[in-house]
Nucleic acid binder design. Structure first.
Length: 423
RNA sequence: GUGGGAUUAGCUUAGUCGGUUAAAGCGCCAGUUUGUGGCACUGGAGAUCAUGGGUUCAAGUCUCAUAUUCCACCCCA
């Protein structure tokens, strides 16, 4: 029989590392709440249509990377490749357009993409993200970027760079595309196949091509950021101003394009160089047309998603330790069946007052029990045997400094384990 | 979808020119005079050598395919 293993591109997160995840998740949710965001949980899978319309029918994510299948009722279902489309669907379905604006939502999800695995890239991966609906102004763009900046600061991460760009709106993009195509057309035959496809479908993406020959041609191409319509120009200007007010440092990266169709105007990335070539820890932007695309009343939106795996790699690289869980408090070693019974009773008492404790349930030798308590980093050990049961008294041993103190067993739940027990 | 490296015990690895019972450290379990951990010592369990073919008297070792993993292209978080 073949070995059973986790599917390609998935992995187990084991107890020894889970505290890092919990730390990051907790830091994120606390910060989001400080900014007025409330958590939303959306389905792991949606009708395929949600992603086709939301993320974009022509994107690689939808065309090549989605886990799509027919369910037993013949519905086309897809595992979510990202969070925004599902949140937007939920926004409309639950009438959130009539809530006081802006509607601020955050989420913690797994997402799925059928891609080849490499550093910082998995088929099932985790995203922390948020979306804000209902505000056109650049103020909220700046607020979101400042939230992210505060998040990295709280984690102690420096050297994560903020890059922003504007990719305009349908109005300026139309003019710009024409200009860009004019610039590229004479050299089109020298460009890669993908760029030739993009030339018709989405010329903007040609700027993003990594192939040397294409880069050479696009090097002097007009940049969208220099060809914005007056409204988009103003938006970007105000965004910069707001970031300055918040003392956020950033750089303009005119090459950020984003591969998801819904983005308009502001796009941004938080980039590190510790995650191999998958340096984008976080990506996001504005999507003023998305809700309308879904058939809702026109509502602007902006959001981001950050890759938890990549974030943890960055923390690892910068040697930033997550807050570790506390060591377990009391181990109750016991001998004989009476000792075992007493140990069970005492453990129940301790748990009632929220003291973490464990009892030997395997009838092991005292020595083996002590070894276990030591290896599991218990703070204290109590031994219960014939003598302790007879006298009602026992010694509590501080495992960190090997001192012992006598205690009355009937009063054990009155001990203050929140402080170091002086011995 | 396209390249390149890797795969031997739970983990990290050794394994000569193809040669007989696959080795070590860590970890796990137990013991070192019977009720006290960390150190030391002794012993034990644990491996279809990723899977499936092929070459050979003989394959962990050579060869092909597949899977997985790592890295890169592409794309994205």
């Amino acid at each position: 029989m073949a070995k059973i293993t986790a599917p390609k591109g998935t992995r187990d997160i084991l107890p020894d590392e889970i505290y890092k995840w919990q730390y990051v998740e907790k830091t994120f949710s606390e910060l989001c709440e400080l900014f007025g965001y409330r958590e939303i949980r959306i389905p792991t899978f949606e009708s395929t249509e949600v992603f086709k319309r939301g993320v974009g029918d022509t994107t690689d994510v939808v065309q090549k990377e989605m886990y799509t299948f027919l369910d037993k009722g013949g519905r086309s279902i897809s595992l979510r490749p990202e969070g925004t489309a599902g949140v937007a669907r939920s926004f409309i379905e639950n009438g959130m357009g009539s809530l006081p604006a802006p509607v601020r939502l955050f989420y913690n999800i797994t997402a799925f993409r059928y891609e080849n695995v490499q550093k910082g890239r998995y088929r099932e991966f985790h995203q922390l993200g948020l979306e804000a609906f209902g505000s056109y102004g650049p103020e909220i763009d700046a607020e979101i970027i400042s939230l992210l900046s505060a998040f990295f600061e709280r984690l102690g991460l420096n050297s994560v760079k903020i890059r922003i760009n504007s990719i305009g709106c349908p109005v300026c993009r139309k003019d710009y595309n024409a200009k860009l195509k004019k610039h590229i057309e004479p050299n089109l035959t020298n460009m890669c196949k993908t760029c030739n496809d993009r030339f018709e479908k989405n010329p903007l993406r040609i700027i993003d091509c990594k192939e040397e020959k294409c880069k050479a041609i696009t090097k002097d191409a007009p940049a969208l950021i220099d060809n914005l319509c007056s409204d988009c120009e103003e938006h970007l200007k105000e965004l910069k101003k707001n970031l300055d007010i918040l003392s956020i440092s950033y750089e303009i990266d005119r090459n950020i394009v984003r591969g998801l169709d819904y983005y308009t105007r502001t796009v941004f990335e938080f980039v590190s160089d510790h995650v191999g070539t998958q340096g984008t820890i976080c990506g996001g932007g504005r999507y003023d047309g998305l809700i309308e695309e879904f058939g809702g009343t026109s509502t602007p939106g902006i959001g981001f998603a950050l890759g938890v795996e990549r974030l943890l790699m960055e923390m690892e690289a910068q040697q930033i330790a997550a807050i570790q869980p506390k060591d377990p408090m009391v181990y109750i070693a016991n001998l004989g069946s009476e000792g075992a019974d007493m140990a069970k009773k005492i453990s129940a008492k301790l748990r009632k007052v929220n003291v973490s404790c464990q009892v030997d349930l395997m009838g092991r030798s005292l020595k083996a029990q002590m070894k276990y308590a030591s290896k599991m980093n218990f703070n204290y050990t109590i031994v219960l045997g014939e003598e302790e049961i007879k006298t009602g008294k026992a010694k509590i041993r501080n495992m960190k400094n090997t001192t012992e103190k006598e205690i009355i067993l009937s009063d054990i739940d009155l001990l203050d384990f929140s402080k170091e027990i002086n011995t």
